[in-house]
Nucleic acid binder design. Sequence first.
DNA 1: TATGCAAATGTTATAATGTTGCAAATTTTC
DNA 2: GAAAATTTGCAACATTATAACATTTGCATA
Lengths: 163, 163
Amino acid sequence: MAASAIPYRPHNHDACVAQALADARAICQRHNARLTPTRERVLELIWQSHKPLGAYDVLAVLAEDGHNAAPPTVYRALDFLQQHGLVHRIASLNSFVGCTHAGKSHNGLFLICRGCGNVLELTAPAVAQAVSDAAQAQTFEPEDTVIEVAGLCPRCQADHRDD
Amino acid sequence: MAASAIPYRPHNHDACVAQALADARAICQRHNARLTPTRERVLELIWQSHKPLGAYDVLAVLAEDGHNAAPPTVYRALDFLQQHGLVHRIASLNSFVGCTHAGKSHNGLFLICRGCGNVLELTAPAVAQAVSDAAQAQTFEPEDTVIEVAGLCPRCQADHRDD
DNA sequence: TATGCAAATGTTATAATGTTGCAAATTTTC
DNA sequence: GAAAATTTGCAACATTATAACATTTGCATA
Ligand SMILES: [Zn+2]
Ligand SMILES: [Zn+2]
Ligand SMILES: [Zn+2]
Ligand SMILES: [Zn+2]
């Protein structure tokens, strides 16, 4: 699977996309799931950048494609992609971003830059452990954890100082 | 300020509400902010239980009150209450819950039971520290952190076993 | 190759959540 | 009490998400 690039820094993003699509094909094959053209196209659109994309943004691009899609088409594709761990929903933004750890079991922690909009997904075992401990202390059985950190990425911190 | 009750367990909830309102009055006074009747009523409604309430749920109760309110009324009141740390928005549920640590500087961690719907707000310094470390490792400057853990509370774990 | 089933998609309508903009009323300040 | 600032009322609108049901497609098997 792909090594994660740092979204805030310039990088060969076409490689990100290509890798994500290749990973997706492999994962779907392994899951006996069908990565249909619509699903693959939606995944590709989500991966257009490291900024999360809203469902209706996806819909708009599909319309430009000439694909006469309605909201359920997009939401169904996104559900599928989430189910197979290929995209994540960012709850605080009502939008979706490609998973940079697809295939690995992980619980994402998202660093969301309010300057440039890019999102970096991390795997942070120490955080996961601390959350697990906190839950256990309350005899609470965690099933799904959302961790979203909004702030400024290194680049945007610098830009901000230049003002 | 109030000691937190455990939402999952029976408790004198009227005391929760009374305490929350008293705290709110004190905090607003300290902030030179006006806890108007509408705002106070919304806070009281949010505190009707430890289950988060949607903005439109609040709106519906206001309508029953005979208060002819529109969505902006509710959203403005909720914004105000959030600003002064009296309620929290649960991003993964698009809904709002009373803060059980009002007045104290804190970053909430929410345990959300998918069985009974109750939410327990914790202050977990170890989690906050781990998140801070993870962000710092990426030179990311955190401003606002959302941590929401969905799962089963002790009571609902037991109920589930009884099925 | 026909046929039958399950998965996926199309289509229409609607629900749920949240915002903008401006006017009127209220409260505070001077 | 007049001026300024804050709060509320109100109408329209924008965005996000789902329900319900018809149709098509992919695939296995007779
Ligand atoms: Zn991921
Ligand atoms: Zn940035
Ligand atoms: Zn709180
Ligand atoms: Zn429960």
